[in-house]
């Protein structure tokens, strides 16, 4: 009796665990299958084409790819230095009384749904960008900035965690040689926590590139490559969010799946790099 129950329990739990792997495989194959029509019809023109016009069945994803890359790049450029600053403040500078409350509120802010950041961006940030940089305010630049604010809490929190792994005794040794706080941070803490810090930045990058709601509100979904950052633009997730429900023809539908597939492959790759290359040692028990 017990024996049977034991077998049942172990086998069922194993089955469920394995089903997670099957699920991921299923996701990939489904996306590939549904992309087939567009992959066959368009080939590399899909990735290299810069014209996206569903009404004449032209599906060039380059503007969306370009938008994903540039908006994420802007977000990272803005968020990385600020995140490092916040992390330094939290791990080395803040008085003990501030450390925990500020640290915890930053972690909590990372939990606020991204759609809220998008809404805030639309109503409060777009007008400011419009006034300062011109244009209509719905733009690549706005998207990058809102995205940077959205990933900031996550980045600051993980950077701080990485910096906090530096043993006190190591920092004290550098102070004992007459180092200033900054000397200790740049010569000891950052080199020591380097893998963790870079890994978390790349992880944040992987998340940012797939982020939909924070940018959908403020990007405009315009399929046009422009070097003017104040112009409306689009990205892969923005295109998906705006057009999935409209796709009528088979190839339109299929090309959106190809976009999804592309996004999944790219973020899987980025996240894997972060995880396997930089964050490997972090696994504890």
């Amino acid at each position: 009796m017990n024996n049977l129950a034991d077998k049942l329990f172990s086998n069922i739990s194993k089955l469920v665990a394995i089903s997670v792997l099957l699920l991921v495989a299923w996701i990939f194959t489904t996306l590939v299958q549904n992309s087939m029509e567009s992959i066959k019809a368009l080939g590399f023109d899909f990735i290299l084409g810069n014209k996206w016009a569903p009404n004449i069945e032209k599906f060039g994803a380059l503007p969306a790819i370009y938008g994903s890359v540039i908006s994420t790049f802007i977000a990272m450029m803005l968020a990385v230095p600020v995140a490092i600053g916040v992390a330094i403040f939290l791990s080395e500078l803040a008085p003990a009384k501030l450390k925990t409350p500020v640290g915890v509120s930053i972690e909590l802010l990372a939990a606020i749904p991204s759609v809220v950041y998008g809404m805030w961006g639309l109503f409060y940030f777009v007008p400011i960008v419009r006034d300062i940089f011109g244009g209509v305010g719905i733009s690549m630049l706005t998207a990058g900035m809102v995205l940077s604010i959205m990933i900031l809490p996550f980045m600051a929190a993980v950077t701080r965690d990485a910096m906090n792994t530096t043993p006190d005794i190591l920092k004290e040794s550098a102070y004992a040689l007459g180092g200033t706080k900054w000397d200790v941070i740049k010569d000891i803490v950052i080199p020591y926590a380097k893998a963790g810090i870079i890994g978390s930045f790349i992880l944040a990058l992987g998340r940012a590139i797939g982020e939909t709601m924070a940018v959908t509100f403020v990007m405009g979904n315009v399929h046009k490559i422009s070097f003017d950052l104040t112009k409306a633009a689009t990205s892969i997730p923005v295109t998906l969010a705006n057009e999935f429900n409209e796709a009528d023809s088979g190839i339109y539908y299929s090309s959106l799946f190809e976009l999804s597939l592309l996004l999944l492959v790219v973020s899987f790759t980025i996240i894997s790099i972060a995880k396997f290359y930089f964050l490997r040692r972090k696994r504890i028990a």
């Binding site: 005794i169 102070y175 004992a176 010569d187």
Partner: peptide, 25 residues
């Protein structure tokens, strides 16, 4: 702290080369 140095309970080699460790101060 330059005049009064300190050695700790555990070795505290910095994450850098042997030469850079000694040259650090």
């Amino acid at each position: 702290r330059i005049q009064i140095g300190m050695i700790f309970q555990k070795p505290t080699a910095f994450p850098m080369s042997i030469f850079d460790n000694v040259a650090y101060g």
